[in-house]
Computed example of a mutant assay.
Amino acid sequence: MTPYSLAFYVDVVTTGTVLGVGPTDSPDRVSEVFGSDFGENTFGDHSMYRDYGLAEFFWDRGSAGHPWSGHHFTLQVHRLAYGGRTLANEALRARYGRFTPRLRFEKLQRLLQRRGVPLLEIPECPANAPYYRTFRQPESQVAVAVIGACGEYATPDKLRVGDVYSIQAPVNAVEVEWRRARVG
């Protein structure tokens, strides 16, 4: 058994879901799994996200009369290093136990490689390079952002180079090509 939260991150990267909830699921489906303890932010009638601490889910829609359409989810792993161990909501802790304050990328990558799940480096947006490096799992379309250099978030007392900053899905092939075009 993989200790603590490592199994959670392996599951997310492998499946492209969080506790079985995918990036395109409805707000009702997300609440069914994660509960009603969330912060909700809307931007006009067209965008909304719900913050469950570690996990955030995003939706958009054409107008107020249309249903919300799932856009993506992000795991804000870096928050755990800032005293946010309880940010892993009750549903996550019930399934995976306690969450450690840092996730080392090499540990995650090693566990995924053992399962035959590759992570391939993709270009980083110029504004984020060299402070972040991003790796993508092509089948699940999950991207893992890693601290790449010392900067605002890479400080010895909190996050270090090589710590996972966030995990997001989906990052599809179109976005990867867009990133390559911006870097190239």
Results as ranks from 00 to 15, higher is better:
Thr42Pro: 01
Val33Ser: 00
Glu56Met: 15
Arg61Pro: 01
Asp28Leu: 13
Asp37Tyr: 01
Asp60Val: 07
Ala55Gln: 13
Ser31Leu: 01
Trp59Tyr: 13
Glu40Ile: 11
Phe43Cys: 05
Arg61Trp: 12
Glu56Gly: 09
Pro27Leu: 05
Ser26His: 03
His46Trp: 08
Phe58Leu: 10
Glu40Thr: 11
Glu56Val: 14
Phe57Asn: 03
Glu32Ile: 02
Gly65Ala: 15
Gly65Leu: 12
Asp60Leu: 05
Gly65Thr: 13
Asp51Arg: 06
Phe34Ser: 02
Phe43Ile: 10
Gly35Leu: 05
Ser47Ala: 15
Leu54Glu: 06
Asp25Gly: 00
Val30Trp: 02
Asn41Tyr: 12
Asp60Pro: 00
Val30Gln: 01
Pro27Gln: 04
Arg50Gly: 04
Asn41Ser: 12
Arg50Cys: 10
Phe34Trp: 06
Ser47Phe: 14
Thr42Cys: 11
Phe38Lys: 02
Glu56Cys: 10
Glu32Leu: 09
Phe58Trp: 15
Glu56Ser: 12
Arg29Ala: 15
Gly39Met: 06
Glu56Asn: 14
Gly35Thr: 07
Glu56Trp: 09
Gly44Asn: 06
Ala64Glu: 09
Arg61Met: 11
Phe43His: 13
Thr24Met: 04
Phe34Pro: 00
Trp59Cys: 07
Asp25Val: 03
Phe57His: 08
Ser31Ile: 01
Trp59Val: 02
Ser36Phe: 01
Ala55Ser: 14
Arg61Ile: 13
Asp45Trp: 02
Phe58Arg: 10
Tyr49Pro: 01
Arg61Cys: 09
Phe58Tyr: 15
Phe34Asp: 00
Gly39Lys: 10
Asn41His: 12
Val33Lys: 01
Ser31Pro: 00
Glu40Asp: 08
Gly62Tyr: 03
Ala64Val: 13
Gly39Cys: 03
Gly65Lys: 08
Ser63Asp: 15
Gly35Phe: 01
His46Lys: 14
Glu32Asp: 11
Val30Ile: 10
Glu32Gly: 03
Asp45Leu: 05
Ala64Ile: 14
Ala55Glu: 11
Glu40Cys: 14
Tyr52His: 09
Gly44Ile: 06
Gly39Thr: 10
Asp45Tyr: 03
Ser36Thr: 11
Ser26Thr: 14
Met48Ile: 05
His46Thr: 14
Pro27Asn: 04
Asp60Phe: 11
Leu54Arg: 08
Phe58Glu: 10
Met48His: 03
Trp59Leu: 08
Phe34Lys: 02
Ser47His: 14
Ser26Val: 05
Ser36Val: 08
